Simulated assay, not measured.
Amino acid sequence: MVRLAAPDEIFADYPVRGQTRIKVMTAPPAPPAGVTYRPMTAAEYPAWLAAGEQRYLADMVRAGSHTPEQARKKAEEDSARCSAGRGHLRPHLLVLQADGEPIGNGWLRHGHLPEVTYGYSLVVDPEFRGRGHGRSAMAIGEQVTWDVGDRAVMFNVFGGNEAAMSLYTAVGYRVVEETRSCDLAAGVDG
């Protein structure tokens, strides 16, 4: 496994397992047209947490960074930590809406680093994808970040999610670290 801060052709054939991305904002972001947000309610929280755990598990397996068993264990541990620390993480749990209808959600942690919000998730539900809502969701994340006084948004994206990586590049997020690994055949001496 290697962690890269810049592309290196030596590792070009190693699959991407994950990327850390960031966008520094120098001016308030423009609010998106047609998509709004509201705080997540306590009643919505349990279903959001369960769905997020399953999505997280699937992302780790798809990226090839964890076996299904490892991913399940990590997802359960991280979910429990999230649930237990909900009041202490300064989270901002959002429900994204278009025409008053929920279309997705977001989980942002403000002050992750000085003036940096960490985006744990920003999700547009599958039936609403392909309509520009992904760009709107990113803009909302930036708007909320700016409004609380942070000036950068940072997050991880798992390998195998080329559609998301393409979106993030298109809206100005740069890669600060990329993890790649190559599985070695059993019995290979190294």
Rank of each mutant, 00 (worst) to 15 (best):
V2K: 05
V2D: 03
A5T: 13
A6L: 13
A6R: 14
D8Y: 06
D13C: 10
D13L: 11
V16L: 13
R17K: 15
G18K: 03
K23N: 02
M25G: 06
A27V: 13
P32E: 04
V35R: 00
E44A: 04
E44D: 05
E44T: 03
E44S: 04
P46L: 09
L49W: 05
A50Q: 11
G52Y: 06
E53P: 00
E53N: 09
Q54L: 11
R55K: 02
A58S: 11
A58L: 08
G64D: 04
S65F: 02
T67C: 11
E69K: 07
E69T: 12
A71T: 05
A71S: 07
K73P: 00
K73D: 12
E76N: 08
E76P: 01
R86H: 15
G87D: 13
P91C: 03
L93K: 00
V95D: 07
G100F: 05
E101A: 14
G104A: 12
G106F: 00
H110A: 08
L113E: 13
E115Q: 12
Y120I: 06
S121P: 00
L122S: 08
V123G: 01
V123R: 00
R129E: 11
G134C: 07
S136C: 13
S136Y: 01
A137T: 08
A137H: 04
A137F: 06
E142V: 03
E142G: 01
D147Y: 03
D150Y: 03
D150M: 04
R151W: 04
V153G: 00
M154Q: 07
M154W: 04
F155P: 01
F158W: 12
G159N: 05
G159D: 06
G160M: 05
A163R: 15
A163P: 05
L167R: 05
Y168L: 03
T169K: 15
A170C: 08
V171P: 01
E178S: 09
E178N: 07
T179K: 04
D183V: 14
G187K: 03
D189H: 13
